[in-house]
Design a protein around this nucleic acid. Structure first.
Lengths: 197, 197
DNA sequence: CAATACACTTGCCATTTGGTAAGAAGTGTT
DNA sequence: AACACTTCTTACCAAATGGCAAGTGTATTG
């Protein structure tokens, strides 16, 4: 496993044991580079690629009814990046996905992914696992939105994904947390008062 | 298709054309009745059944850190009912699912569902579609939580799912909308002022 | 039928968050 | 270096929401 697709193979190794199957899987992935600030997916277009992000940092966002950007997700190295509905239902995307830093990833087309799903049961299971885990974490986030204050949500994000706070501008983080950038700035100030180092 | 499992077959007919495959699918579903206020799934237990709800009305809820119930979903007749993470990842559920009215549904075990996924590709596609659509609608709800006021969210619910407002007590609807029952009661009052009939 | 629990509303006030605008500091470009 | 642009902070006030508690009516149950 010394070739350039080590990353892809490592990603699926836990679920797919046989080397020949890993080889077949990897053969359908192609390298993709996304420069900083460029888009991987644009609202209105139908997503054609399912990406595994090897390095870099991205965000997904959509526009609300009044035209404001709402950041809906952040993606770090090692994560799968795609719009579930657009990619799997073959419909125009309601959100855009953009590189916050220069990104390198590996992409596969819908047809190729489906082909592998049909021919390799373990790969299919892995695919379902990815979907289910994303779903579950969105449910957790929704529960957090309902029951916790913005300050607590910020504290949690700080604990679990400090790299987001390092790499994303405040306004993106704010709309991800469901508040305005003004509020987040206030929260951050209060927060540093109580957590003096 | 005059037998008792018409409901199950009708449910999958759009995706699964051949009658013999529909027959095989239906053969793995079993009738399940859940009396009013009884639970279909309890927090802490691992979900063993994937249900298609033929009649009745249910809700899912979980407890937040301070012990308050948070209603996370409502299910009406015709909808699939299951906790995604618990059922597919075989882990203890973080939420409970309860019948708000007497319910009748059709259930299938994890192993049987997986068996059908492996042997009937169209059924597999249907299963993925259900998952993806649930995921997408949760994303929409999250966006709504971030960008819209509680009053607007209430108005939308009134438009799209009036049956929820008819069948569920106010406090369940309130936590589903992410507000307290006090606030929802106030919103409802303001709402009726402006929308006198 | 009485007793009890539940569902909903309302008032009062505190807290959180939003909207707007101004300004400071940093970034990038020519 | 000058310029525009973005990012972040801060102040002010308004609006939205929460917490608590009382009160009313309805359902449930023994």
């Amino acid at each position: 496993m010394e070739d350039e697709k080590v990353f892809v193979k490592r990603f699926f190794q836990p679920g797919v044991a046989q080397p020949d199957k890993l080889e077949m899987i990897a053969s359908h992935f192609h390298e993709k580079l996304v420069p900083r600030h460029e888009h991987f997916l644009l609202e209105g277009k139908t997503s054609q690629e399912y990406m595994l992000l090897e390095s870099g940092f991205m965000r997904a966002y959509s526009l609300d009814t009044t035209g404001n950007e709402v950041t809906t997700a952040f993606y770090g190295a090692g994560q799968p990046v795609f719009d579930v509905a657009s990619f799997f239902l073959r419909t125009p995307s309601k959100e855009s996905i953009q590189a916050l830093t220069p990104c390198k990833g590996w992409v596969i087309s819908f047809d190729d992914l489906n082909g592998l799903f049909h021919s390799i049961p373990e790969f299919r299971e892995a695919g379902r696992g990815i979907l289910v885990k994303g779903y579950a974490s969105l449910k957790l986030r929704m529960q957090s939105m309902i029951t916790e204050t913005a300050e607590t949500r910020y504290a949690n994000l700080l604990q679990t994904n400090p790299e987001i706070l390092m790499q994303a501008p405040l306004k993106y983080i704010a709309s991800y947390l469901g508040i305005t950038d003004t509020s987040l700035s206030r929260i951050r100030r209060e927060f540093s008062k109580h957590h003096k180092n």
